[in-house]
Design a protein around this nucleic acid. Structure first.
Lengths: 210, 210
DNA sequence: GTTAGCATGTAAGGAGTTACATGATTTT
DNA sequence: AAAATCATGTAACTCCTTACATGCTAAC
């Protein structure tokens, strides 16, 4: 009820579960996790950490207080780690698999946290996303056949490329789902797609689906 | 100086240049143009229109005021169209080709408006985006070789897929640039890539770039 | 000794969403 | 006569960015 999605919060909790860190380092890891571009600003990160501390999900310990024999010169680096409640909250969030898990903004983060997610939830999320993308294909193809006369060449080309990208992601998901089903918990075979080679290059917009 | 990027505003002006419309219809066209998903809300659209009117770039005329002989029952539909200043402003915006034109948030809209953009600007934007994506490839490959040990299988797989997507877009841009250079103003050959067939499927992360 | 990178934060504001509020018109 | 869809708007709120502000530490 109170759980305001909060992709950023989820990512923070997920990374801190793996290993405690201070803000500055966390940001770098987050930039990789959140899609490798879009450098997250400190103006987002620090207030988010503050909020998580206020809600008792993480605690920040000044790393200079710990070592016994003096070395007291160094700058305060606040290392954050999960509390018991934080771990519980994270587990709850990771075991959920509603639409919020497979939308564009959150799917990547949920996927990156799959190591900490149980097998059934992983499959449910992958399938949810696949369904979502299939709907999107439907929408694009529909708008294509409905209004292709009124669209100029560039809009059309953009549409075509968008469709290609989505189709590519669907194939990716299919291979992932295959992998998850095949082995209970074995590793991902990178890029190998057993029965379906790359040669599906026909006229994508013809609608050879269903 | 004053030109706060405003992707939405640009898209609105671009669509209204093609043909005057009322808000509701505009929204549907915008949803296609802005990437086919992410349904734009009225809470964004109407205030944006209001702002454009306030700045004198568009005017809204109540479509029921126009017809001479009474038909006065129908609901007010406010049809918006560009003013002279609006057209000027749009031309200025469309002839610019700074980083703001080829970033993720704006590139699609700029591309969709290519019919209204001159040939040199089109090429500059396409090349700008290509360079941007090449940088991104560099970043991803770097972080991959720097920290592949510390990354779990899923993060790695996500990275690999992201790389593939970006590589695909680079090839797309290459074919578009080719097309733009080849003909001065001829149409886009849909999906046909002259010299480079789809068979570039090797180990993407090996870094066969440069 | 100065540049680059480490490290933490705050204040103001931009760009959008959700939820609310209202009513007309068309289709079933 | 009900349901869908057309049509326009506002208020509150969320999430994030930019710009500011501060100071330490390592490398050149």
């Amino acid at each position: 009820m109170r759980a305001r999605a909060g992709v950023l919060e989820l990512a923070i909790l997920g990374l801190l579960q793996e290993t405690p860190m201070h803000g500055y380092e966390l940001r770098k890891r987050l930039n990789v996790l959140l899609g490798s571009f879009r450098a997250l600003s400190y103006g987002s990160l620090y207030p988010a950490l503050k909020g998580l501390v206020a809600r008792g999900l993480i605690v920040g310990v000044d790393s200079q207080a710990a070592p016994p024999h003096a070395l007291a010169g160094k700058r305060a680096r606040i290392v954050y780690e999960l509390t018991a409640e934080g771990k519980e909250h994270l587990q709850d969030a990771l075991s959920s698999s509603g639409p919020a898990a497979w939308e564009d903004e959150s799917f990547d983060v949920r996927f990156a946290l799959f190591s900490q997610t149980d097998a059934e939830t992983r499959i449910r999320i992958l399938e949810g996303r696949r369904t979502r993308l299939a709907e999107r294909l439907e929408t694009i193809r529909e708008s294509y056949s409905r209004a292709r006369e009124r669209m100029d060449e560039y809009t059309l080309e953009l549409q075509r490329h968008g469709l290609e990208q989505v189709e590519h992601e669907v194939r990716w998901l299919d291979s992932l789902i295959d992998n998850e089903r095949g082995r209970g918990r074995t590793r991902i075979s990178r890029g190998a797609r057993p029965g379906t080679p790359d040669t599906a290059g026909g006229d994508s917009l013809a609608g050879n689906d269903k």
